[in-house]
Design a protein around this nucleic acid. Structure first.
Lengths: 244, 244
DNA sequence: CAGTGGTCTAGACCACTAT
DNA sequence: TAGTGGTCTAGACCACTGC
């Protein structure tokens, strides 16, 4: 791939990653200490340190005082990969279909603390409850039931979601800072089956998402996709953890 | 919440994150330039730079020469969250059950290029095909069918997987550097249902995983969980992207 | 041109920990 | 005690880009 147009600390990082990726430096292998790398690359300690610190933050190496730096024995990414959470209108459009959101229910009510999906809302809060169907060329693509905090997003109460689906609207108006997701597989019940136009019992992929803005709960949403319609994709590449 | 025991650059980072998380600095807001932060915290530019660089790498702010640093308008994490991929023996053990892997099939064969899950293997390669059941206290917990490249892991051919499940064995012997995952929902077919001891048609969460070591394909595995048995969990917190 | 970030230097002091 | 990483300083030069 490319070359030269990188900073020195980036080149040091890349070279170490290459040795690890090729197996030349197996898990547990000791990486030369900073002063050796300083000599090898003829640079200051800060530069070496920047490269090694980045590798440590990415979980590729482990650094221990007095002992040195080592190729990580346990890939932390083993259990953590980047998951793409779908923006449904975007997914539908990318597949070449026309997208539409069909609202089925809208009401303002108090949150029910005993319900898992809404237990994070303030007792004094009110939530806008929205049920709807995401359509691709007029055919049901996914079901959505959502709660929006009136405290976090008062403008949502009067918003029109026929042009912009609630999820997209929220992203623009109330960006979140924290999110939790759960991914499940369920058999479609009678209502699901009717709305999705599938047989009762069909396997559906369900995503539960809850978001916060700081400490303030923003939304809780459950989206159901027909199993044969949609897969989630996740991946991990050592070295390009972000900005890839 | 802890305090004091943090480095200065960490405290600067945390304070900026707090202002962003609270909405005090909304998306698009300009963050004070480095020289102002140097004065405010009475420190050198390197220290301020370290804090801001970390925030930029986490996607929380965007930095542009001549213009300054700004709170990111579009959360890159919107569509990317950290997903925990389960290590099945660990999950079972954590739930307080005894774990066992029961091998159902083992054979060496050529990869079938037309099959999606094995198309990444070299035509000249041979794959060890393994089918098995993960048991929790003797009860089926998950099904697994796996292919292991003989080129990447020749020692696997003679390995005994009764003590260590194939996945765990591979982690120790042939760490991967790249992985791809697909998550689906399917209805259990007759065989699945028999092995998992559930009704035909029960919704199952299926994870397809393919891994590489550098350019060398290592393994392809499909794991099926009973929908009511297991949920995947993913989350994102701005600011504690790792190590958290 | 001037203001900003990107990177680097050549030191320094401290914390930690195997020996 | 000695070797290692963690952090910081007080500068420096350069690249980029809006004015």
């Amino acid at each position: 791939m490319g070359s030269a147009r990188k900073s020195l600390n980036q080149r040091i990082r890349t070279e170490i990653e290459r040795r690890i990726g090729s197996g030349q430096w197996p898990p547990g292998h000791r990486i030369p200490p900073e002063h050796e790398l300083m000599a090898k690359y003829d640079c200051s300690r800060m530069t070496v340190s920047k490269a090694l610190t980045a590798l440590a933050q990415a979980g590729i190496i482990e650094r221990r005082r007095r002992l040195g730096s080592f190729v990580a024995r346990q890939h932390p990414h083993l259990e953590q990969v980047a998951l793409d959470i779908p923006d449904i209108p975007q997914v539908v459009t990318e597949r070449g279909f026309s997208y539409a959101y069909q609202e089925r229910l809208r009401r303002l009510r108090a949150p029910v603390p005993s319900n898992d999906q809404e237990s994070h809302f303030d007792a004094g809060d009110r939530v806008l409850e929205l049920h709807g169907v995401h359509l691709a060329d007029g055919t049901p693509f996914a079901l959505e039931s959502r709660l929006i905090s009136a405290l976090a997003a008062p403008e949502a109460l009067g918003a029109d979601f026929s042009a912009t689906a609630p999820g997209s609207w929220l992203l623009e108006h109330v960006p979140w800072t924290r999110a939790e997701h759960r991914i499940r597989a369920v058999n479609a019940d009678a209502l699901d089956a009717t709305l999705l136009e599938v047989d009762v019992g069909a396997a559906c992929l369900v995503i539960d998402r809850r978001t916060w803005r700081g400490a303030q709960p923003v939304t809780a949403v459950t989206q159901a996709f027909l199993g044969t319609n949609y897969d989630l994709v996740a991946r991990f590449s050592a070295g390009s953890s972000r900005r890839g």
